[in-house]
């Protein structure tokens, strides 16, 4: 469990990046921090592994204030994925993935074997192991970044706009992959994005931040959709423009099924029969499509 208790961060130049934030992140869930640029998402994320220290307040991991833990040791126990992979250009893929185990003193051959397994885990061909990062595509580098973050088998995975630099198709693929990995590996994932659709696609819990590092709303995607806390949230998730509104079309006479269309009239999905009887409005699982 990760807990922010009354956390404030003011950078030395006076910028107030985070203002009195309280968040509880349950283990083995995906929490998405979402907000526009400069709203303090990265700052918040980096306070978990002490790349940034709060000005006041506490960050607790499993009940321990991280301020009392040696930052280097702490970071080796938490996976971190960056936007552009952040791979070391001078190390081969296999060594990049093995970075943290090697830092922790695992024997080279064991670390290498584990690296190769992790390439399988994230869906990469082992043939890439001896290449350098610049020989890989953006999407592949991103997968290596995920493999590297998993290498020390951390309980916590921090991801800062990890899929921001890849094209939409690869991005969808990586999102699906992340959800699969998360349920298979049981990690606590904290995921930063400024893409609200990505947030809806991944989150168990959403934390919506507004400029100045203030939490606008915390809740499940369904809660946020159903009850936006204020106009800012409503506008941020596109509810005020009707973007999130889905409509049911009349039951198709031939198949007897009900098609859901979005605000522009494009089909968004089908209603399962047992849900169709509920009738009006759309349930959260319909919205996911």
């Amino acid at each position: 469990m990760i807990e922010f208790r009354g956390v404030t961060k003011q950078y030395p130049d006076g910028t107030l990046a985070i203002e009195h934030v309280d968040i509880v992140i349950q283990p083995r869930t995906i929490t998405v921090l979402v907000g526009s640029s400069g709203s303090g998402k990265t700052t918040l994320l980096r306070m978990i592994n002490r790349m940034v220290d709060p000005t006041s307040g506490q960050v607790l991991v499993d009940g321990t204030d991280v301020a009392t833990v040696d930052p280097v040791r702490l970071r080796r126990s938490i996976g971190y994925v960056m936007q552009n992979g952040g791979l070391l250009p001078h190390r081969r893929i296999v060594d990049n993935v093995a970075t943290v185990p090697l830092l922790r003193g695992v024997a080279k051959s064991a670390a290498r074997a584990r690296s190769l397994e992790l390439l399988d885990t994230v869906g990469l061909d082992r043939g890439l192991a001896d290449k350098y990062p610049r020989q890989l595509s953006g999407g592949q580098q991103q997968r290596v970044g995920v493999a590297r973050a998993l290498a020390a088998d951390p309980n916590i995975l921090l991801m800062d706009e990890p899929f921001g630099a890849v094209d939409p198709i690869v991005r969808l693929e990586l999102q699906t992959e992340l959800r699969r990995l998360q349920s298979a590996l049981d990690k606590t994932v904290v995921f930063v994005t400024h893409d609200i659709d990505e947030a809806f696609a991944l989150a168990d819990q959403m934390v919506i931040l507004r400029t100045g590092g203030i939490v606008a709303q915390i809740g499940t995607p369904a809660e946020v959709l159903a009850h936006p806390a204020d106009d800012f949230v409503a506008s941020f998730i596109g509810a005020d423009r009707g973007q999130r509104r889905l409509r049911l079309q009349p039951r198709d006479p031939a198949s007897g099924r009900i098609v859901v269309v979005d605000s522009a009239g494009r089909p968004a999905g089908l209603i399962e029969d047992d849900h169709a009887s509920i009738g009006d409005g759309a349930s959260p699982d319909v919205k996911a499509s």
């Binding site: 790349m51 702490l74 070391l88």
Partner: peptide, 18 residues
């Protein structure tokens, strides 16, 4: 040296010296 890479190495748990 790219800032990204330095940040990443810090996040991985390299000490300053390493």
């Amino acid at each position: 040296v790219p800032v990204d890479v330095k940040q990443a190495s810090l996040a991985m748990g390299y000490s300053r010296w390493q």
